[in-house]
Amino acid sequence: MSAVHVSTNINGDDVEFVCRPDESLLDVLRDRLGMTGSKEGCGTGDCGACSVELDGRLVCSCLVMGAEVGGHKIETIEGMAQGDKLHPLQQKFLEHAALQCGICTPGFLVAARNLLERNNDPTETEVRYWLAGNLCRCTGYDKIVRAVLDTAKDMRKSAAKSSAKKPAAKKKAAPKKTAKKGARHAA
């Protein structure tokens, strides 16, 4: 197996790497690029601990081959906070004690952000079904769901404030980018 050279973009930065054709995106992130924030809980797309966004679409990075991400945009947990400013979801997870051991937390945060980018007013049921692909064994999900709902509430408040100031502002954030053909790997 000869290695493959890949040029991609991760968290807004252009990144180049080489990998074997049998390496998953998760392997590449963790073992080649030192981005160990995405976790491997199963390697089969069942636990969601490795969740990342690929061109705005939520995927399990363990089900994406490293060699096929050339030219795409990848968002991982490492890109969620801006400098020393936590993303509102990260802040709410802390305030709600929505983590115990913390191994599933990056995956939940990436998945929850993806939800709130599509829908900033989800019902509890919508949150629960959206996050059904992420396993947490510690919390019983209660505090995670509360943290996501509370974040959405704050986001709506601040969106209402800014739309009051700038009438032209959109009420709902649109999805970053629609998924390209073939981007659905988590089949």
């Binding site: 160990t36 947990i77 969620m80 802390l94 983590l99 913390g102 990056p106």
Partner: peptide, 20 residues
């Protein structure tokens, strides 16, 4: 907030498989 919290919501916390 827990003292190890920020590391765990940013992916910085090092779990078993994160050492090299």
């Amino acid at each position: 907030n827990r003292p190890d919290g920020v590391d765990k919501v940013t992916g910085r916390a090092r779990f078993g498989a994160d050492f090299a």
